[in-house]
Write a protein that binds this DNA or RNA. Structure first.
Lengths: 203, 203
DNA sequence: TTCGGTATGTATCAAATCAATATATGTCAG
DNA sequence: CTGACATATATTGATTTGATACATACCGAA
């Protein structure tokens, strides 16, 4: 049911085509709320039109296939408000990066380093997007979410910067069922590049 | 393809039934990596068994339907490492809460307050889960991800505590020229001491 | 004690959704 | 002038979800 909210929300910030809605929900201003593909967006827009919550106008330019530009109606705005007032679903964070981190002991340093770097780049890219959208932040809610996003990402970047090496140092060090390797204490320098890591499937 | 990684990862931390895998992925120790329902877990486990990456043993207790307990094999561990070494997909954060925040101007204070409170409770609950799992954090990777999670959640809680009121104060203050709310909610009228919301200059 | 609620468990199915692709056109670089 | 890329609508096959059925056990309340 949330593709509805997504479409209505994006349209409440301005007219858009299905293509634009998809783009903004995956990698644009609206990429923190929900994601959807064409297969769900187009049917949803059709349904919304059918319910009178949005209208369409066809803009046929020279040559180009006719753009179908959707606009939200007053009834659409009211419906959006109603849906937003219902108790929200919990936020979800799904992290392929943390999965790698979780398994650090079974991987090698290069893999961990690459994973951190990829995560860092992704965060910085998203940060740039957010920081770039400061012109159109006249909407108070948009400004608040933008600041929240920036704060969270800067925090994450800082954490990666200050704790990344710790993670990398865990490469190839299975903890095993042995008495907590905490006992070994300084697991840092001495064994740095010693063990043939090699990700042996330890069992 | 990530349900595979999820199952293999959970099994690499110990034997489990399909039911347990599902539970841990939605609300347990492993709830930050990927989510899956029975409809994808059971077929995946069957396929993994077929490939020799996991084994099953049936434990038939008195009365209860036979538990099918899955174990990861050496080949399974190797396959997991291989898959983890491939470039990871970007992390994703989907936030029904931020969607509400984005639309703050169209909602009322009670709704915003409730949304923040719900978010706060959810964060605290997840935080408790993480903090409760400090015994079994002998795995270095698990310890790192746990600390990372705790740090992020504490940061978020702090941000909500210090900026939540700002958000609530945005209730019923449309910024742009659009008089929304189709009259059904005369929020903007009744808004208390609101001076004409300085932020204008709509597109 | 028996009813209902919750928890453990496996398993399936219709409906929703995704990833990929087909179609069509414009643009811009090499 | 060719190939890659962006815009744009739309569909299709495969996957995934959400709900449910089935079966048992435990626990508190009527």
């Amino acid at each position: 049911m949330s593709v509805r909210k997504l479409c209505l929300t994006i349209l409440s910030f301005g007219d858009a085509t299905g293509y634009e809605i998809r783009k903004e929900s995956t990698s644009g201003r609206f990429s923190y709320f929900d994601e959807a593909s064409f297969g769900s967006i187009y049917p949803t827009l059709a349904k919304l039109e059918n319910e009178g919550l949005v209208t369409v106008r066809e803009e046929s330019q020279s040559g180009k296939p006719t753009r179908k530009v959707y606009s939200i109606t007053k009834a659409g705005r009211a419906a959006l408000v109603t849906e937003l007032c219902a108790p929200q679903q919990p936020d979800s964070y799904r992290s392929p990066f943390l999965l790698i981190a979780l398994c650090a002991e079974h991987l090698d340093q290069a893999t961990l380093r690459a994973a951190i770097e990829r995560r860092r780049l992704h965060l910085q890219e998203e940060l740039s997007v957010l920081q770039g959208h400061n012109e159109e932040t006249q909407h108070p809610g948009a400004r608040w979410t933008r600041n929240y996003g920036i704060a969270c990402m800067e925090f994450s970047l800082g954490y990666l910067a200050s704790h990344g090496e710790e993670l990398i140092a865990m490469a190839g060090r299975p903890a095993g069922a042995n008495p907590i390797d905490d006992g070994s204490g300084r697991l840092s320098k001495t064994t740095e590049q010693t063990p043939p890591v090699a990700t042996e499937a330890a069992e």
